[in-house]
Amino acid sequence: MEKIIRKLESWYKTNIKHTREPPIKLIDPIFHHHKIKTYGNDLRNPELPLEDRATAASYIGMLSYTGGSNAAMVASAYIKDMIDILLMPDTSSEVRIAVLKGLCGMCYISYTNQNEAKESHLTEILLSYLEEDENISATDPEALIVKFWVCYLMTVVCCNNIPYIKLIKEVGGQTLRANLESLSKKNWKGWPENYAELMTALSLMISTPHSLPLKYLA
């Protein structure tokens, strides 16, 4: 019995004790870049259902957000493709939400992607979504959620980007302010912030910083 134990100890010391696991990479750039390009192919595939292409857009955004600045740079190649989907007439709320989510992830930590989206006329698209008839919510309950995501995306692209805030305020004018005020009164339960209210605060910051609500000055 003693010989067996010694053999086991010897085998353990030789094969187990000195074997070290390779370090785990919490963010693997190769994985993120590969997956972004894979979903990018789906996004650009006109033979796929639009819902599947929109889902691919949301995955690209998630990978861009979790993969850091380099992943966001890779994902930037697909901004125009996402905006092209938002420009399509009569797209469902489900498709719009998925694409808006994707753009949120891509622009969240990337000033470059924010400006790339701006150059692709994202501002005008978002403003047009906010101007759509509110009564449509009666037949499409998700239509209001689309507007919530628009408000969130607006705050994302305006993050540390004062020129973008000025552009949205200039193009949107009083119509934007009225739409944001209306949306700020809706039920934002389940969201971290009332992003319509936050976007209003950001636009006020440009011209009258002292009129900001106290919670945004803290």
Rank of each mutant, 00 (worst) to 15 (best):
G102S: 05
T139S: 09
C151P: 01
N160F: 06
V146C: 02
H121L: 15
I109R: 13
S120T: 10
T155M: 07
S92Y: 03
G105N: 00
K147N: 03
W149A: 03
P141V: 13
T123K: 06
I165A: 02
V95F: 11
L153M: 02
L167T: 02
Q114L: 04
T112G: 09
K147G: 11
A143V: 03
L126V: 00
I136P: 08
D140C: 09
V156L: 09
K147S: 10
Y111K: 12
S128W: 02
A117E: 00
Y129S: 02
G105I: 01
I145C: 05
T91K: 08
L122I: 13
L87Y: 04
E116M: 09
L167A: 03
S92N: 10
D90E: 13
G102H: 04
E119D: 13
L127E: 07
V156M: 14
I162Q: 15
L103Y: 01
N113I: 08
R96K: 15
E142A: 11
I109D: 11
C151R: 07
T91Q: 08
T123G: 14
T112H: 12
L144N: 13
A98T: 01
V150S: 02
A138P: 08
S128Y: 02
L130Y: 04
K166Y: 01
T91L: 09
W149L: 00
A143M: 09
C104D: 10
L153H: 02
S92E: 12
L122H: 03
I165F: 02
P141G: 10
K118H: 02
T91F: 01
N115R: 12
S92Q: 02
K101E: 05
N135T: 13
L86N: 00
N160Q: 15
E142W: 05
V99F: 03
V156N: 09
K101G: 03
T91P: 06
A138V: 14
L126K: 06
E134Y: 14
T91I: 15
L122V: 06
Q114R: 15
L103P: 00
N115I: 14
E132I: 09
E134I: 13
L86P: 00
L127D: 05
V146A: 03
L130A: 05
E134G: 11
L167K: 04
N115A: 09
L87G: 13
P89Y: 07
N161F: 09
V99E: 00
C159L: 08
T139C: 00
A143T: 09
A98N: 13
T91A: 06
S137D: 15
I136V: 15
L100K: 01
Y108F: 11
S137W: 14
K147L: 08
T123M: 10
L127V: 06
V156A: 08
I97E: 02
D140L: 07
N135L: 12
K101W: 08
H121Y: 15
V99A: 00
E132L: 14
D140A: 05
T91E: 03
D133K: 07
N135S: 15
D90N: 10
N161Y: 12
K118A: 05
S137F: 15
I165D: 01
M88E: 14
L144V: 15
L103K: 01
W149N: 14
A98Q: 11
S128N: 08
F148N: 05
Y111M: 12
L144Q: 09
G105Y: 01
I136R: 14
S92R: 07
T112W: 10
